[in-house]
């Protein structure tokens, strides 16, 4: 590896570390620690919410059947 390429590599590694550090430092300001995870392969967050009738229900109440879940608003 030439000296110039080595400097560039080190510079790139340094930049990548800086970006990673800045990302880690910035993360808490845009996402709270308790943020539910919604990812394929993971359980859907099992929050207890009210129904339109005022009763308390959870997504887990629908286990045992296949579910298509929409997150939406009427606007």
């Amino acid at each position: 590896m030439t000296r110039r390429a080595s400097i560039e590599t080190r510079w790139l590694v340094g930049m990548a570390m800086m970006v990673a550090l800045v990302t880690v430092l910035l993360l808490p300001s845009v996402a709270s620690a308790s943020a539910p995870v919604i990812e394929v392969g993971e359980p859907f967050p099992d929050l207890a919410l009210r129904t339109l009738d005022g009763e308390v229900s959870r997504v887990s109440n629908y286990r045992g059947t296949k579910l298509v879940l929409h997150v939406f608003a009427s606007w």
Partner: peptide, 17 residues
């Protein structure tokens, strides 16, 4: 903590997305 709508998920009978 979603930031857009609509979002649609298919969840199996075990509760897994």
């Amino acid at each position: 903590e979603v930031s857009v709508v609509p979002l649609t998920y298919a969840i199996d009978e075990h509760g897994i997305v």
